[in-house]
């Protein structure tokens, strides 16, 4: 930046030198200020998360004090109570339900989205952009408007409180996102490589395995993680369509708090445990998170 040709501005010798010195000093000082500001902001944003984690390791008595007991003794009691079902609520069925719904629907999404993305990027059908935008438009319609018919259908078909009905709905909820993401990842496969494979007489399966898969694999992983997160987080459908048998972790969380004396540590423990898979998946997919959230529009 500073290595510019002085002949461009021959008359501005001294000011140019002055500016150069300033511009060399400024970035470091500015990034120090920016760094401090960023750290301050990050701490403010992370405090609720830290507080949640810290409280989950406190005893109920230390959790509910005013002023807060930051340095209180740490204990695993509420984790033990959570998994021991001390409050009369067994956390395993909802956790298993959530895992079933999220993992199965993610697999289904990939099974449907990968071929679709292939037909939208590598060997595109005619009017493929229209198809893309149809997929996207379904994502923009609010789920709440479809809630009642889904409920009535489930009641009449006997799939109320059935986790597999939720799997189907989560699949449809995530399919448009996955198609958009997968298309943008598959479009990164160089056309020359595909042509070369064709000229060498490689069949479809071989091309997919040797040419497409290596390029698209990180994208497939990121898509899977993001679909997993959205399914795991979902509350409204699960709340209306499931009950005691198929209730998922978010539903469990809402029923968990009803009214049980001192329960702050319990709530934080449950929140930490239920958020943990999402935090892990999110940080694993960190680099591709934007691309997924912006439906592949931003890279």
């Amino acid at each position: 930046m500073t290595a510019l040709n002085p002949t461009v501005q021959p008359s501005a010798g001294p000011t140019f030198l002055g500016r150069r010195r300033k511009s060399r000093m400024d970035p470091t000082r500015n990034s120090t200020i920016a760094g401090l500001a960023a750290w301050a902001a990050a701490l403010i944003f992370a405090i609720p998360v830290f507080w949640m984690v810290l409280t989950s390791f406190h005893s109920e008595n230390d959790a509910a004090t005013n002023p807060p007991s930051i340095a209180a003794e740490l204990t695993l009691d509420s984790y033990r109570n959570f998994f021991g079902g001390a409050s009369g609520l067994d956390p395993w069925p909802p956790l298993i339900n959530s895992a079933t719904a999220s993992i199965t629907s993610t697999i289904l999404v990939l099974v449907l989205a990968i071929p679709a993305a292939y037909a939208l990027s590598i060997k595109p059908v005619e009017k493929w952009t229209d198809v893309m935008f149809f997929f996207l438009s379904t994502k923009m319609l609010p789920i709440v408007a479809a809630l009642l018919p889904l409920f009535l259908f489930a009641r009449n078909a006997g799939t109320l409180d059935n986790i597999w009905f939720l799997v189907l709905l989560y699949t449809s909820m995530n399919l448009p996102i996955a198609v958009w993401m997968m298309r943008s990842f598959l479009a990164e496969v160089p056309a020359e490589m595909l042509e070369a494979a064709q000229i060498d007489g490689a069949g479809l399966i071989l091309t997919l395995r040797k040419v497409v898969a290596p390029v698209a694999m990180p994208g497939i992983a990121a898509t899977a993680l993001i679909c997993f997160i959205f399914s795991w987080n979902e509350l409204l459908l699960a709340r209306v369509l499931t009950g005691v048998v198929a209730g998922t972790a978010p539903v469990f969380l809402t029923s968990f708090v009803s009214s049980q004396g001192l329960f702050l540590a319990k709530v934080c423990t449950a929140a930490v445990i239920i958020s943990l898979p999402v935090l892990l998946a999110g940080f694993a997919a960190q680099d591709k998170l934007v691309q997924g959230l912006s439906l592949g529009a931003v890279k």
Binding site: F45, A249, P250, L253, A270, A271, V278, L279, G282
Partner: peptide, 9 residues
């Protein structure tokens, strides 16, 4: 991190 906490939680 805030975005990766389950919304209900």
């Amino acid at each position: 991190a805030p975005f990766l906490i389950v919304p209900v939680a």
